[in-house]
Design a protein around this nucleic acid. Sequence first.
DNA 1: TCTGAAAGGGTTGATGG
DNA 2: CCATCAACCCTTTCAGA
Lengths: 159, 159
Amino acid sequence: MTAASLDRTDRRILDILQREGRIAITELAQRVGLSTSPCSERVKRLEKSGVITGYHARVSPEAVGKTLLVFVEIKLSAKSGEVFDKVRNELLHMPEVLECHLVSGDFDYLVKARLRGMGEYRHLLGNILQKMPASAAADSRSYVVMEEIKETLALPLDR
Amino acid sequence: MTAASLDRTDRRILDILQREGRIAITELAQRVGLSTSPCSERVKRLEKSGVITGYHARVSPEAVGKTLLVFVEIKLSAKSGEVFDKVRNELLHMPEVLECHLVSGDFDYLVKARLRGMGEYRHLLGNILQKMPASAAADSRSYVVMEEIKETLALPLDR
DNA sequence: TCTGAAAGGGTTGATGG
DNA sequence: CCATCAACCCTTTCAGA
């Protein structure tokens, strides 16, 4: 699960699949200089060993009306494990929340959400702040994205 | 490009492809209650109209040694268009930088990077801060992710 | 671990409802 | 806008090296 010794060919396969997730195995095989059988087996091995965790179509946020991208920093005042778990579970089940990370530093959670507009934003903040234990009244700070310079999942693979 | 009037079936297709990007069209067709031809045509239409912007394998960061996830807030002191463009271009071409957004608020750029460890982190910060115009000496603040609660690209599609 | 060939299944496009 | 069907292509498996 954590370092299955990837050779040069594996890394080339991953590099291509990260950018062209629906490429045919035959074409992938040609590009990496293999015939289809071993290429197919390598892909299957990468999937089963957890190196490849899934394949995903990427949908244009604008095309489905999610024109607002915001990051929200959340700071909890009561820092019991119970409070953290409750907040974590709330965020985990909000579909507009695309990312949520527990960070070290000045605050606790960093949340990334794509929203339809300010109405959804108010709703999100309300949900986050109100569904928490009363004793854990949280502080939050939001950053609205004005321009997306880059957004990818593709990890560099040092050929 | 910006709202091609997606019907219920289109949204179901998108919902599935966001989570299973390599599903066979025949199976996708069954799940949404179509035969394969119209399903295939819908997918192709969604691709060509820019609703689906690509397909991507997701690679486990741990499996390729990228165990450190950091967010960096960057604040520029000189805010000319030239400075913004230069910084944007630097960040755009750093492969460890997975996301970069221009935000409104207390700082200017929010950067997300996956790194091999503290060595790469120092290298990244050095690159960011030193490759900028001398007049634009930037301020930065970093947040190390201790736990990833959630990370997805899948947009909710309000069936 | 690879190649090559063969069988099974998926994809695509023409035709018709 | 949808189903059917046939031709083609892809995938997978297996024998052999």
